[in-house]
Amino acid sequence: MRFRSSRPEASVEAPGPTLPETMRAAVLDAPGEPDALHAATVPVPTPILSEVLVRIVAAGINPIDAKTRAGRGACGAITSWPATLGYDFSGVVVQAPYEGHPFPPGTEVFGMTPTPRTPGTYAEYAVVPSLSLARKPTSLSHVEAAGVPLAALTAWGLVVETALAHANQRILIHAGSGGVGHFAVQFAAYFGAHVIATGSPRNLDWLRELGAAEVVDHTAVRFEDAIAAVDVVVDLVGNVHDDTGTRSLEVLRPGGLLIEVPTGAWTGFREAASARGIRSTGYKVIPDGSALATIARLLDSGAVRVFVDRVFDLEDAADAHRELEKGHTRGKIVLRVSDD
């Protein structure tokens, strides 16, 4: 005897017009300079298993995007071209795996895609694992929310899960005004740590507003000459500029912790830290929807905020990458993909 399931095999679609077969996207035909990014029409991706299909309203721009575009970063994992970059997004669910799914069609969500395993968020639609989603903070616009996921989850992993931020702990955060940095300063301060942040002159007062107890103008003074010993260094710079990573060892107490974030920016940090009796680790972001939901509550409460420096249209993704690579962004750069 055959039994027919009462549950439909296809994903549950939002009511309304049939989804299009193609969409606008900013794509990459091969690694290159920012101008390698260009507008194109590509197929709308198809969700499988527990994935949902999201209509993207806005997409965040991150340094890993620029590295991948240039042939570094995650470029080696791209298996077909043209490729669509982008991890961050804020948008609306249009297809869910089943009727009782936690994020039914019509839900405003934000989160991360596993790019380049799947096409990224520089596009009108993206497929997203259910466990990498959270409901969008109600207090934020889609543009603001799109600047949160990768940077905030990275900062959360660095400060809360790895450094275990707590009262009376001294944490030095390099590049505190950047995308990850401005969240890291806020999370560390929220959990009671004494936060010291490095930045440029125009950002010092802003870093204090975010919760930094001490700020260091890296253009005027060497931080190792200006601060007392710290328990943790969150290094978002590495040795690319002025040996920031190596110099950080000078301010860490014995047994302290160095968290080295930029990939490839200081390949010998583990050995150098060990020789000084200092613990060390790298870090890779975990796209955890549960952690993102906690961050959303902090954003809605006003305890944490996101700062969006510049907004570009999807077709101007190349200009967004050029702006990012200048290295002077306060907070985040975001692409506006479609109407809210």
Rank of each mutant, 00 (worst) to 15 (best):
H182E: 01
R222N: 13
R135G: 08
R270W: 03
D316A: 14
G327M: 04
G289K: 08
S132N: 11
H241F: 11
T115N: 07
D205G: 06
P105E: 00
K326V: 10
H182P: 00
V93R: 14
A163C: 03
L28C: 09
T107M: 12
P97D: 14
E124M: 13
T68F: 04
L324G: 06
A66I: 08
L85E: 06
A152W: 01
T162M: 02
V44L: 05
S130E: 05
W206R: 14
G289V: 08
G176I: 08
E271S: 12
H241T: 15
S90M: 04
G73D: 02
A123S: 12
I61P: 03
T115Q: 07
G199I: 04
R208M: 07
A58Y: 05
T115M: 10
G111Y: 02
G238P: 07
V42M: 11
T246W: 03
L85D: 04
T281P: 05
P116C: 09
V311A: 12
G157L: 00
G331K: 13
R69K: 09
S280W: 01
I48C: 05
Y122P: 07
A193N: 02
F89A: 08
A25S: 04
V308Y: 11
E315A: 05
S290G: 06
F191A: 05
P31A: 15
F269P: 02
P45G: 06
P116G: 09
N62D: 01
A213E: 15
A77R: 14
R7H: 15
A134E: 06
G327S: 11
V160K: 03
L210D: 08
G327C: 09
V232T: 08
G302W: 01
A74W: 06
D225K: 04
A320K: 07
H194K: 12
G16T: 11
A303F: 03
R322N: 11
I171H: 03
R270C: 05
S177H: 02
L19T: 13
V93C: 14
A151W: 00
P34R: 00
P31V: 13
G157H: 00
P102K: 15
V128Q: 03
G268A: 14
D235C: 05
G16M: 00
